[in-house]
Amino acid sequence: MSLYQTLYYMALAGGMAGLFSWGITALLSGTILATRENWVADLVAASTLGLLIGALTVAFSDKWSGSRVVPRYVFAGAGIGLVAGILSGLAMVPVTKALGETQPFLTRLLSWMLAGGLIGLGLGLRWVMANKMRVVHACIGGLLGGAIGGALFHVLGSRVPDLTQALGFVLIGVGICFGVTLAPILLRDGILKFVSSGDARAQAKFGRSGKEWEIQQGDSYQMGSESRDLSKTTFSVGVQVFIPDAAIAPLHAIVFGQEGRFYVARHRDVNNQAGLARYVLRVRGKTVTTSQELRDGDDILIGRTAIKFISKRAQ
């Protein structure tokens, strides 16, 4: 799946999460929340939004990265989203108290932005090991989605009841997921592009869509065949460049950017005699024993999979 396809589907996944959370909120509001405090309604709305966006985005992103959907990650994403939602719902209380009467539009805008920003921040934490900036980008995406959703809800709320609120929830979900996905695309310094693979699974997954992985300076990305369900992490992504190739080690290589240049190196698990003999890692036809600088257009052969490195400078 290309970068823009990932962006498109992730945004839609966020939109779906927003729609479902609106549905649940509407259902709850009609029943158990009918006679409670207003802030409880906000708290429930923000929490539901965070929970569903957290769960769905993790599930979808894992599915599209070529790996399996692991319940552990989905629950962790839902939990983090829920906590972020609760925090944003609680943060709305002082904002409403301070500005509610004098600046109603600003209050609503700020409340929605708070919800989007905090949920985005929580979800962005997933990629903090690979790309610290993605946390900020997810937060900014959530803020933007929240601002658009909140403004729409405030301005059109009375004219098209239900629809504008639902659209607001959809937009906030789209905004968060868009932010999580778009920022690395915009700020990428290079791309690893799937070319072909001798392993039918990898070829079937990535061959037709031309899978691309965006890479940034200052970050390091693990390449390997370790599926999500075998990873020992609780929430963060273990292998960022996952290739289901039997000839690729679970943790095979690391691509990292330093001082404007990119390098590929063997992972320490395969950087020994046995690893050198069994697991192929070649750049421009030469076996990589420790690390090798990548230049624009370089072919990387990892296992039986060919990947092309494209530098943004050349683009």
């Binding site: 509001s29 207003n38 309604a41 929605w112 909140g150």
Partner: peptide, 16 residues
């Protein structure tokens, strides 16, 4: 007097 609905959720009744 400005009556304000919740920021995100549906307004709730203050009583009967």
């Amino acid at each position: 007097f400005l009556w304000t609905a919740p920021q995100m959720g549906v307004p709730v009744y203050a009583g009967k």
